[in-house]
Simulated assay, not measured.
Amino acid sequence: MATDLSPTSTLEAEHIRILYYEFERQLKTNYSSKNYIRFCSILEGSKFVSINKEKKFHYDQNSFIILSPFSEVELEINEKTKAFVMEIDDYFIRQIISKLQVELEEEEIKYIENEFFIAHFNPDLCEVHKKIVNIFNQNRLNKEFLLDLYSRELVYNILKYKGSEKIINNKKSKISAIIEFIESNYLGDLKISDIANYFGMREYEFSRYFKKFTGKSPKEYIKDLKLKKAKELLAFQNVTEVSFDVGYENISYFIKEFREKYGITPKEYKKII
């Protein structure tokens, strides 16, 4: 059997990353979900999966799986299969949870463990999932914006499933504690050495550990948090105020990093929001 798990195509918006797979032959492999909630669905065919050494499951177009960060997955495919995976930013999910109250669906989750669940699509979740797949497949303006918009609706509908918040808001392992610490302190004078010391690690050891799980260096991760926050603040503050509020003492450097990240300057961004 093949063991390669490279996506056929990908697309990254501000809060989500989509990975689309086409498997033309049998495959047996394993992977880790790393520092993301994963929404896993099938567009054609089916899969067998075993998550964190639990029993093997079979699922197809009628079901979906939610994986917590750092889940270990054993995957087996025995037929032509098309898979659609969404990696959803944990900070984005926590924002939604903090603002919403939802009525729970009567339908129970098909199977639930501490780090994942598998359930059948209900009509509302099925509809928004189809919207996201269609937008992904289209060449249109504002594609990334629309994907982030419908991702909010997706998370909202997932939260209606009983027990779902326990999974998608699950905190586990040292890396989750590190990320929570960074997200609570990144607007201050946060040094990488200070974070490493707080968690009892040497700086080089901490940086390697952090990148192993997140795919980013601590410096890159903090920069991305600051620039995301800057986009929020630009809705009601001027560029100079935002620059200082997110921790940039040099406004020119802030403008440079913002443009490198988003392709436009903060001033240009203010004009379109």
Results as ranks from 00 to 15, higher is better:
1 M>K: 13
3 T>D: 06
3 T>S: 11
5 L>S: 01
5 L>C: 00
12 E>V: 12
19 L>M: 10
20 Y>S: 08
21 Y>C: 03
21 Y>G: 05
23 F>D: 06
25 R>Y: 09
30 N>Q: 12
32 S>T: 00
35 N>L: 11
35 N>W: 13
36 Y>Q: 14
45 G>T: 00
46 S>P: 04
49 V>E: 12
50 S>K: 10
51 I>P: 01
51 I>M: 05
52 N>F: 02
54 E>W: 02
58 H>D: 06
64 F>E: 08
65 I>W: 02
68 S>M: 06
72 E>Y: 13
73 V>F: 01
73 V>Y: 01
75 L>V: 00
76 E>T: 09
77 I>R: 05
80 K>I: 07
81 T>C: 06
81 T>K: 10
82 K>F: 00
83 A>I: 02
83 A>H: 13
85 V>W: 11
87 E>F: 02
87 E>L: 11
93 I>N: 13
97 I>C: 06
97 I>Q: 09
98 S>W: 11
100 L>G: 02
102 V>E: 07
107 E>M: 10
109 I>N: 07
109 I>M: 10
111 Y>P: 02
111 Y>V: 07
112 I>D: 04
113 E>K: 15
118 I>F: 03
119 A>P: 01
119 A>G: 04
119 A>C: 06
119 A>T: 04
121 F>H: 04
122 N>H: 15
127 E>H: 15
128 V>H: 09
128 V>A: 09
130 K>H: 07
130 K>T: 08
130 K>A: 11
131 K>F: 14
132 I>S: 06
136 F>T: 04
136 F>D: 08
137 N>C: 03
138 Q>V: 01
141 L>P: 00
143 K>F: 02
144 E>I: 01
146 L>W: 13
147 L>I: 10
152 R>N: 09
153 E>T: 08
154 L>H: 01
157 N>Q: 15
158 I>D: 05
161 Y>N: 11
161 Y>W: 09
166 K>H: 04
168 I>R: 09
173 S>G: 08
173 S>C: 06
182 I>T: 03
184 S>G: 07
189 D>I: 00
190 L>I: 07
191 K>D: 09
191 K>T: 03
193 S>N: 12
196 A>G: 02
200 G>Q: 10
201 M>A: 04
201 M>G: 05
202 R>Q: 15
206 F>W: 06
208 R>V: 06
208 R>Y: 10
212 K>N: 10
212 K>E: 14
213 F>L: 11
215 G>C: 01
216 K>T: 00
217 S>M: 00
220 E>D: 13
223 K>H: 03
225 L>S: 09
226 K>E: 01
232 E>Q: 13
234 L>G: 10
234 L>F: 05
235 A>W: 05
249 E>Y: 13
250 N>G: 03
251 I>F: 04
251 I>P: 06
255 I>W: 03
259 R>T: 12
260 E>L: 14
261 K>V: 00
261 K>A: 12
262 Y>T: 01
262 Y>W: 05
265 T>K: 14
267 K>F: 04
268 E>T: 06
269 Y>M: 12
269 Y>S: 11
273 I>M: 11
273 I>S: 13
